[in-house]
Design a protein around this nucleic acid. Sequence first.
DNA 1: AGCGAATACTTGACACGACAACTATTCGAC
DNA 2: GTCGAATAGTTGTCGTGTCAAGTATTCGCT
Lengths: 163, 163
Amino acid sequence: MPETTWLTPEQLSAWKKLIAVVELLPGTLEAQLQRDADLTHFEYFTLAMLSEAPDRTLRLSDLAAATNATLARLSHVVSRLERRGLVRREPCAEDRRATNGVLTEAGLAVVVAAAPGHVDTVRRHVIDPLTPADVADLDRIMLRVLSVLDPTNAMHAEPTPRP
Amino acid sequence: MPETTWLTPEQLSAWKKLIAVVELLPGTLEAQLQRDADLTHFEYFTLAMLSEAPDRTLRLSDLAAATNATLARLSHVVSRLERRGLVRREPCAEDRRATNGVLTEAGLAVVVAAAPGHVDTVRRHVIDPLTPADVADLDRIMLRVLSVLDPTNAMHAEPTPRP
DNA sequence: AGCGAATACTTGACACGACAACTATTCGAC
DNA sequence: GTCGAATAGTTGTCGTGTCAAGTATTCGCT
């Protein structure tokens, strides 16, 4: 029966605020994207990742890693995006188990149209209330947390334009 | 057509890491609580809030504010918890529109049993990789973000033991 | 070469949250 | 006091994610 070390008041305070943000932030992003572009944040992010890939093409496993989703989830989402003509599936030449996701012209247009509004939302709700020092601190802290949450670094590689 | 101000590389880097945490953290907490206590994080949090309230009782609206949920969501959750005998509904004497949620003995037992494992998870994944200075920075930064995300302060009032 | 294990996805069933519509009660203005 | 508006909560439907199971292909070992 291991002794439980409780949290200090400072830790608890920070923790509760982090939870609150984790609970509230998705809804905020979701709402704006849904309203303006009829996209889930995850759908947006998926399209954005594809838009940055060479030939706007990625194997679904890589895309799953980039968006930090399970393959099952991604498969469903790609199916929906495919129905809307924003993404296309293609068999992968090198590995016939694999499937490539390809961003269509229509899909590209949608991301491009959605990006400014999304960035504005991000600025207004997260970036603007922070000083440059805050941003640096945030980056450092999230990196530390991520290295435990996601030791394989799938999610926080350096390269990638647009939020 | 408003000009879009893009994010600086520093802002982008921090932002992407924050998103990653927001995406990954819930799953981690969820998994442990589900496994060890058969509870959603939200259910745990709900029970925890009740456990701290006077008489382990709260009006559903207050509970919704404390857990930062909509009334509809909370109502569903309370129904599930009620079926499991962890919470009881009671009509509110002062305001007959209102309903009180009351934590049962069984419910209390469940939170108490679940708390140590949950705290350990929180420590391991979030608190331990941070220095005390990081924790202070995190608290400050999340407060700033919250004051925009949740201007009414519903979520981040000071008092409250246990995570 | 061949066979078992691992990889890459797909699909169907189910659970949880969001939204909208509805009931019931209380507040406020006149 | 009464009537309209606001508040408190419930319920049903639907979209999205998770989990488990299934298929197809490739890898690795001997």
